[in-house]
Design a protein around this nucleic acid. Structure first.
Lengths: 152, 152
DNA sequence: GCCAAAGTTAGAATCATTTTAAATCGTATT
DNA sequence: AATACGATTTAAAATGATTCTAACTTTGGC
């Protein structure tokens, strides 16, 4: 249930002594209940209706906090700035290089494979690993069609 | 040899009918002979000595071209903008979240593992895969020491 | 309920990247 | 080797996402 997800995340924040503000709760709830890989702008516009006057700076601050806490991840994206994703189940992303559309990819051993890459990194470099970012790039099905039809 | 690497890359460009300009040759040579994960600024400063008056816009344009051609990859990096890497042997990167230092990670099956992730992505989403980006984040050994000594 | 520390706000500032328009260059074709 | 045209380069200006600032407000422990 989406609601327990929010509660879970809130509990996680409390246990880390993070102050709970209405803004943080609102942004967290938005992220948990929307899997649309929003940008800062997307979030700002979406919340404008229900919570006017929320500063862009607050959204930037809050997202940075969540990323540092590891409950949200950043997705780089050429076209229109950074996208964010509430990271519950381990997965990675495919990003369309033409239109920027983002899709999720899940498979059973992904976490194992990711850990392997992290372990290799730790062993070879001595870095103390804190996170990762896996992105695949390609053309989405829509953009494939568009390219084909314009005879490219 | 560094030189054959440059020649190889030049041949690759020629076969794709990419015009060869002195600027492109210079930047390509810099990338092939330096594995320092430079930013645009780093490249600009380094080339200032040997090639004054090279415009920043040209460096941006050229790097974008090389990335599109797949011979160079982008590395996201919080602190100081985007870094670039001439991508000869398959590998991925560990990035220090504190100081931004970047290290390479190689292991025998990496390419196989990366392909697996690409294939999963293609099957699940129908995207036509053109590239990927794998980054691990952590604290480099220097920053671990600094943190420890200041009793953090 | 009080208070210090932490968070929020609106607007200004920053700075990496992109755009512009004019000048120059690379190369395919004679 | 000369021509012509599209592609590339340049410097400067414009853009726009993100960060900073300073004043104000809120949170949570006592």
């Amino acid at each position: 249930m989406a609601n327990t997800d929010v509660d879970e995340a809130l509990t996680a924040l409390q246990s880390r002594r993070i102050r709970m503000t209405p803004q943080r709760r609102t942004i967290l709830t938005y992220l948990v209940t929307h899997h649309n890989h929003p940008t800062v702008e997307t979030i700002h516009e979406a919340l404008e209706q229900t919570t006017p006057n929320m500063s862009l700076a607050t959204i930037y601050n809050t997202l940075k906090l969540f990323v540092d806490l590891g409950i949200v991840i950043e997705l780089a994206n050429g076209e229109d700035g950074v996208h964010y994703d509430y990271y519950s189940k381990p997965h990675y992303h495919v990003i369309c290089t033409n239109c920027g559309k983002i899709a999720d990819v899940f498979y059973p051993d992904f976490q194992k494979d990711a850990k392997k890459m992290e372990n290799e990194a730790a062993q070879q470099t001595g870095y103390q690993i804190t996170g990762n970012r896996f992105e695949i790039y390609g053309l989405c099905t829509d953009c494939q069609k568009k390219n084909a039809s314009k005879g490219k």
